[in-house]
């Protein structure tokens, strides 16, 4: 029982992270119909940005790198990292993707791979982030928020609800609710959905398409930055920017977006949680050898049974 609950908690925390990243993939796809392969590198920027900001801001404010600062410091670093990545996302769209707005979709796709490689390798330069893992100074106390004991004597086991897991879930949920409000209850959201539905008609109706696209990139990048920040809260040892672990993370979030129905905002969140559950429970109950296999098998099954994803609507061909 405690093991089931423990796995559940991990799955929820990891699912929140996948969902945050998947949102970025799905929003860009929804509007521009292309897959932004550089999105996982924005997560990396969020993670490493949080690290770089922390090691500079903490001493400047008079806190040691090993003591936990007040909550507002963590919030400030999260906000700064989000602004930083939002700016980077804006720049990437402006310089790399906008000139290709009328080009075949394949060109943009290949450009996205180029941007991804550029970000990875620039990040590895010694005066940027460097090519070795670093340790994130603790911004949150890693104490257990609640501990429950199950069983007696020798086989007594604990269910530990960690502070960090709760923070991840809470932050991700509030960001996703803000997102939901923005997309479905504001004028900007209406514009986004209109551009997503038909770019040309939206433009004819007087919607500033370029501005809406920019905004989508900024929003997606900010969510990715938040995911990067939360990842280093949970896993303080940060891998170097070109490490395959980041590619795999981006790939899984992308799978989450596809499983949920790419282009569908709620689907991305659902997909994120679904693959985290499959991954964690598969690893616990079956075998940890095939952790990634479960995720990609599920992808194949979904593509066979419901190619448009769990919440995806059937494809409408534009005439």
């Amino acid at each position: 029982m405690s093991d089931f609950a423990q796995t559940l908690i991990t799955a929820i925390a990891i699912g929140s992270l996948y969902a945050l990243i998947a949102l970025g993939y799905t929003m860009v796809y929804g509007i521009l119909k292309f897959i932004n392969f550089a999105h996982s590198d924005i997560v990396v920027l969020g993670a490493w940005g949080s690290y770089s900001l922390s090691v500079r801001i903490l001493p400047a404010l008079g806190y040691g790198l090993n003591e936990v600062p007040p909550v507002w410091v963590a919030l400030m670093i999260l906000l700064l990292a989000m602004i930083f990545c939002g700016a980077i996302g804006f720049t990437i769209e402006r310089l790399a993707y906008r000139p290709l707005r009328r080009a075949p979709r394949l060109n943009v796709l290949i450009t996205a791979i180029g941007v991804s490689l550029l970000l990875q390798n620039v990040g590895q330069l010694s005066f940027v982030f460097g090519a070795s893992p670093q340790d994130m100074p603790p911004l949150l106390s890693d104490r257990a928020l609640a501990t429950f004991s199950f069983g007696e004597g020798e086989s007594a086991r604990q269910l530990v609800i960690g502070m960090v897991d709760v923070v991840i879930f809470a932050t991700a949920t509030s960001l996703m609710l803000i997102m939901q409000y923005l997309v479905f209850h504001t004028q900007l959201g209406v514009a986004m959905r209109a551009v997503s539905f038909n770019t040309d008609t939206a433009a004819l109706m007087g919607i500033p398409v370029d501005r809406v696209v920019s905004f989508t990139f900024v929003l997606g990048s900010m969510l990715a930055a938040a995911a990067g920040f939360l990842i280093v809260m949970k896993y303080p040892s940060i891998s170097q920017p070109a490490h395959t672990i980041w590619v795999l993370l981006g790939l899984k979030a992308f799978v989450a977006a596809v499983i949920g129905g790419i282009g569908n905002v709620r689907g991305a969140v659902l997909g994120g949680f679904v693959i985290a559950f499959v991954e964690q429970f598969g690893a616990f109950y079956v075998s940890s050898n095939y952790r990634d296999v479960y995720v990609f098998t599920l992808l194949i099954l979904i593509l066979l049974v419901k190619p448009s994803g769990l919440l995806g609507s059937t494809l409408r061909e534009k005439v």
């Binding site: 796995t7 991990t10 040892s237 490490h243 672990i245 991954e279 964690q280």
Partner: peptide, 8 residues
Amino acid sequence: GDQDYSAQ
């Protein structure tokens, strides 16, 4: 490179 070992 794995970051999460909770399942194991």
